[in-house]
Design a protein around this nucleic acid. Structure first.
Lengths: 231, 231
DNA sequence: TGTACATCAGTGAACGCGCGTTCACTGATGTAC
DNA sequence: TGTACATCAGTGAACGCGCGTTCACTGATGTAC
């Protein structure tokens, strides 16, 4: 791959000097984002997203990128931001396909893992990169983002329906997230792992968690009696 | 930090030319490893372990390291290897402190997480770095290493004792590992996370897993009856 | 015990590399008259 | 409609940086006589 613009022109890329029509976003901005996202998907390596590589893939010189992004960090951040919103959308869509709150929680887990495996590098930046890395996907960004919020709401729904043992919903949500994240991140990190079939492993873990969360016989009995034994 | 050997000498470092006594390992090799491990602990960043930085910390020139390690990869690999063996030692020691197989499994989880948090960068290399990275902590190295082997044995012990539901021990072990790894890796990645108290969260997750793994009432009944109903 | 020599763990300087970013510029497009 | 000018999205070349690694060398230590 060369980053000579001559090569880009020879490949039929857009001419080097384009002006956005009145009031519209410069088209190159989207092209750069698309090129970078494509590179990320192809190479599965954030380090492969150098300004030179992105420029080459978009058919421009590296300096041209700085007309649309203040620096590399901003470029990568925007890719992650879009993907993060997509994650929420996909998980919510999956969760909505069952009206049983516990089954809905399982569907959430499945959708989350699948999405993570489909976007491993974005997943790495969100949840596996160290604080201070660029881009820094901060704790605040995660906690105040829709994904965690919606998960906690889903746990609350289970609590309201009485299908899981009474507990702090945030604690349950973090526990569930940890477990599902553990599987996702291991699968991303070690794709050649001799895992049992993914679906089987996933169902196994979700079943253990579900079994661990449902009220025990004693709990159900206590709750049935509670209305009559209140002080 | 400078890597001028003059500075090292001024700091009272060992003279630049040392010869290992007959048949002994060159002392500088251990000094380099110690300096690199110290840097890793201080900086919590694998990228901070450049050959120049290690050389500076050890009070030698970068080229001197190549007398003892073929390249940077080998140096880092050895640090991780030693730490990996230490992980196994610590986990086994913790597991041995209870004779109840299920409680022993919990102790394993606790020890694992604590060790991971105490050695976050080594943990990253083992379980959070991508295949092909240097050093490449391959799937084979993990699977054939003592940590996984011992975990599977511990699960088998629980199965033998009948304290968890019958299942493929490897599947159960992977499930447990995923969950505990999830918590460990999230805590490493987002240390500023507003987690509930670590001990509480840890106990919560281990309790859910344990509750999910123990035989249900039906299962216990079935098993009690089984000897008489076999064909 | 004293001298000559061999060894080899270190030095010091340099290599080539890819990186993010900067900067003076150019020339196609849009606008005003 | 035609001309002069302003705009600004691009170019092309270069910057300084830190990196892993190489290589001819040096001089303290160990050894043989």
């Amino acid at each position: 791959m060369t980053d000579l613009p001559a090569a880009a022109l020879a490949q039929g890329a857009a001419p080097h000097n384009r002006r956005a029509p009145h009031g519209q976003v410069a088209p190159l901005r989207e092209e750069i984002l698309a090129a970078a996202a494509r590179l990320l998907e192809e190479r599965n390596d954030i380090d492969a997203i150098s300004m030179r590589a992105v420029a080459g893939a978009a058919g421009v010189t590296p300096a041209a990128i700085y007309r649309h992004f203040t620096d590399r960090n901003e470029l990568i951040f925007e890719i992650c931001e879009r993907c993060f919103q997509e994650l929420d959308r996909v998980v919510e869509e999956a969760a909505a396909s069952s009206s049983d709150p516990l089954e809905s929680l399982r569907l959430r887990g499945r959708a989350y893992i699948r999405f993570g495996l489909a976007h491993p590098e974005e997943y790495r930046i969100w949840f596996m990169s160290k604080p201070g890395a660029t881009p820094d996907w901060t704790v605040d960004r995660i906690m105040q983002g829709p994904v965690v919020t919606h998960l906690v709401q889903a746990v609350q729904a289970c609590l309201d329906a009485g299908v899981i043992r009474p507990a702090d919903p945030a604690l349950v949500a973090f526990g569930l997230w940890s477990a599902v994240h553990g599987l996702t991140s291991l699968l991303i990190t070690k794709p050649s792992f001799p895992w049992p079939d993914l679906d089987e492993l996933l169902d196994h873990i979700l079943s253990i968690l579900a079994a661990g969360l449902v009220p025990g016989r004693e709990e159900l009995t206590r709750r049935a009696v509670a209305p009559f034994s209140a002080p």
